[in-house]
Amino acid sequence: MMRHANGFGLVEIMLALLLGLVMSLALTQIFATTKSTYLSQTSSASLQEDARFVLAKITQEVRLAGMFGCLGRVEDKSRGGQFSRAFHAPVEWNAQQRSLTLNTAAIDADRSWHTWEVHTDCASSATAWTRGGAPKPAEGEIALAVHRQIYRFNLEREELALNGQPLLSNVRAFSVLFGVASGVNAKGIARYTAQPDPAMIRSVRLTMTLYDPADRTQEYTFNVVAAIRNRLG
């Protein structure tokens, strides 16, 4: 008596293999898409975090630009009289060198690297000294640390540097415009320009474009406007 053998036929095996292959390809595609999305979101978040850190630092210093004490006049006893230029032009943008110079009050607790010290009694006298050459403040005087910060954009390296040290890489563009008033005593902003009269400056607009070198996300352009809190000029 003949018995029928139980099992799978060739057609069934081929169909099972084909179905398994289709499912494997679908899962692989889902995994690849998920990984690509994750890398894109991570890269985007990293660019935004870098921009937020750098622009927040610069805007904080912009708001303190020109804050050289309580008085409108400061006697310059710094080396070579360098403080006088900082006093009259606390914010400068050099379009050719792509550099932004900020002369600003210290915002950190460590004042060991400041450029100048201003000693003032906030009533009748204020004197500027070069770091390391300043005497002890006289009785009734306070010492205000002043930094010179130079941000320079290197187009060839696509890098933003601070005082000659690399600060941020993968920078496609960096530019500065100044919101200026129509007159010395006017408060509103009449227009934006790259080369203003210091006395007319009311705000600073920073524009920076960052990119991912691995091309995992699109380029991002960030804009921020910082108001000048201290009258310049």
Results as ranks from 00 to 15, higher is better:
G132W: 01
F31R: 08
N223I: 06
A181Q: 04
Q165A: 15
W113L: 14
A194V: 11
F153G: 10
L39V: 11
S24W: 00
Y220L: 14
L47E: 04
V91Q: 01
W116G: 08
A138Q: 12
A161W: 05
G20T: 06
S44C: 03
F68K: 08
P137W: 03
A126T: 02
R3N: 11
E139S: 14
A56D: 10
R85E: 10
R216I: 01
L206E: 01
F222K: 06
N170E: 10
E141W: 04
T37Q: 15
D212G: 08
T42M: 12
T33E: 09
K77A: 14
D212R: 13
V224Y: 00
G233I: 00
V180D: 01
V146I: 15
S43W: 00
R63C: 09
A89F: 00
L167M: 14
E49W: 04
A145G: 15
G179I: 01
A95H: 08
S175H: 07
E49Q: 13
L102W: 02
D215L: 13
W113C: 10
N103A: 11
K35W: 06
S78G: 09
H4E: 09
A32D: 02
I201N: 04
K57Y: 07
I150D: 10
A109G: 07
A51N: 03
R216H: 10
D121T: 04
R157I: 00
I228Q: 03
Y38T: 14
L160G: 10
L232F: 03
V74F: 08
T207C: 07
A181K: 02
S112L: 11
A123S: 12
R205T: 08
E156I: 11
V180S: 04
R73G: 04
A26M: 12
I30E: 06
V11L: 15
T42L: 13
N230C: 07
L168H: 04
V180Y: 00
K136S: 15
A173D: 12
